[in-house]
Amino acid sequence: MKRLSTPLVFAFLLASCLRPSATLPARIQEDPSIVFPPFFAQPAVLLGAEGTVYELDGDTLRALFVATEDLLPPQDKPLPCGSRRESQRYRVLRQGDLFFIRIDEDPKACGRTQPALDSGASYAIHRDGRILRRVMDGEADVTIPGADAGVNSTPGEPGASSADSLSDGPSPFLPPAWQDAGSPEPVPTR
């Protein structure tokens, strides 16, 4: 099982740096021993600030290219907003010869406030361009330990929270700003 050390994370919009519609099929050699990192556990370096020069190496660009070509439909025809390259957000974490890539639909790019359910995907791309792992949102990740073990299960009322988990105070699992007693955010119009 491959382990990650200190990661370097980039997040950026990949708007127009890739040519449309590649014709090469993705090379896939599934390696189930590869474990995806927690893509959202730490802040990412955001690329795209105006007036700043960024440099991207070719291996990273190719890895992004391979992942987007595999995930998204050909871009040379009219597409729903959520399937366009420029409507995604990309996180890249390099570990040796592996690029871990997380692609999520960006609801703001499509004029929405809320993301769709299961609108992301994770890829592990080798430096040579091979796809070593890919997991769509909602697809079972066979590498998660104990995913189907069920050994620690207890009886309960379906859908209920744990009896002692609903306290009267603010939740320690959510930012305080989300739990202010003021009015909720306005419901977006559709």
Binding site: L117, G138, A140, L166, W178, E185
Partner: peptide
């Protein structure tokens, strides 16, 4: 409850987690 199906028995995804916390800021947490 925001209900949906997973065609293959996968856990809740990053997208699912983000979606429901976004809804929580629009509606009520409890």
């Amino acid at each position: 409850f925001a209900l949906h199906n997973h065609p293959y028995a996968g856990r809740l995804s990053d997208g699912d987690l983000r979606m429901i916390t976004s809804m929580g800021r629009t509606h009520e947490w409890v």
